[in-house]
């Protein structure tokens, strides 16, 4: 194959692919959010069984590479006899991954609401769901905003690994373009720049929210 030149149409091609990155991120965040909330509630809840299950889930997910989880999801779905679409496999793995990290962060936020708020609301005869809904979660949500925005950055970046099971998002598009043009320096710089353009505003926002005292301080973590 002869290398051709890298042009503006290629940049457009990458930007088109970035839409899939964002879509996959949205799926991961939405699904992960649901699982994360369930996990956080289970870990702070009264049921010993649910507490253990939720904490095993978090420990296990945080103890395996996302790449391995992607492969497991891809081949696991295959075994079930369902036609494996990369987007399904990638969504499953990313949702499970995001759920653990969001769940852990949100558990911290729920626990950061003073115990006395539980007592005050209990002594007013509120049920546990009512305590959560009207007293605890509204306060936890405020604390949760900065770390959640920070985790959104992690999710966007994590979607790049969906490329290894053949899902064509931004990273995969970059590899394909590189195979056609042999301009790796330029292409991966542009790919990186597009990711940066998506993530940097979120990172800044998260940092600003945190500094404005509007949330709990969380150590920066990610990969």
């Amino acid at each position: 194959m002869n290398s051709r030149t890298f042009s503006w149409t290629d940049v457009l091609f990458l930007i088109e692919a970035a839409r899939w990155t964002l879509l996959l991120s949205a799926i991961a965040f939405a699904g992960g959010g649901v699982i994360g909330l369930a996990t956080a509630l289970a870990r702070t809840g009264p049921s010993r069984l649910l507490r253990s299950l939720a904490s095993i889930y978090v420990e296990v997910i945080q103890g395996i590479p996302l790449l391995a989880l992607l492969f497991l999801s891809y081949y696991g779905i295959g075994i079930l006899g369902i036609n494996v679409s990369p987007v399904l496999a990638a969504s499953l793995a990313l949702v499970l991954n995001a759920g653990a990290f969001l769940g852990e962060a949100w558990r911290g936020c729920i626990e950061a609401v003073p115990r006395t708020q539980w007592e005050a609301s209990a002594s007013l005869a509120l049920t546990r769901p009512q305590q959560l809904r009207y007293v605890i979660l509204p306060q936890a949500v405020r604390l949760a905003v900065p770390p959640t925005v920070g985790l959104m950055v992690q999710i966007v970046k994590a979607t790049s690994l969906a490329s290894v099971i053949g899902f064509v998002e931004l990273s995969r598009a970059g590899q394909m373009l590189n195979n056609a043009t042999f301009k790796p320096f330029l292409i991966f710089a542009v790919v990186g720049a597009i990711y940066f353009a998506c993530c940097y505003p979120l990172s800044k926002l998260s940092g600003r929210l945190e500094r404005s005292g509007n949330g709990s301080r969380s150590p920066v973590k990610g990969f």
Binding site: K157, S160, I187, G192, F223
Partner: peptide, 23 residues
């Protein structure tokens, strides 16, 4: 720090492995 935190590791890896040889 901002570059590391706001781009995926996979892309950093590809840039170093595939991109750097061209310079």
């Amino acid at each position: 720090v901002e570059i590391v935190r706001n781009t995926p590791f996979l892309v950093q890896l590809f840039f170093i492995f595939f991109g750097l040889p061209s310079i």
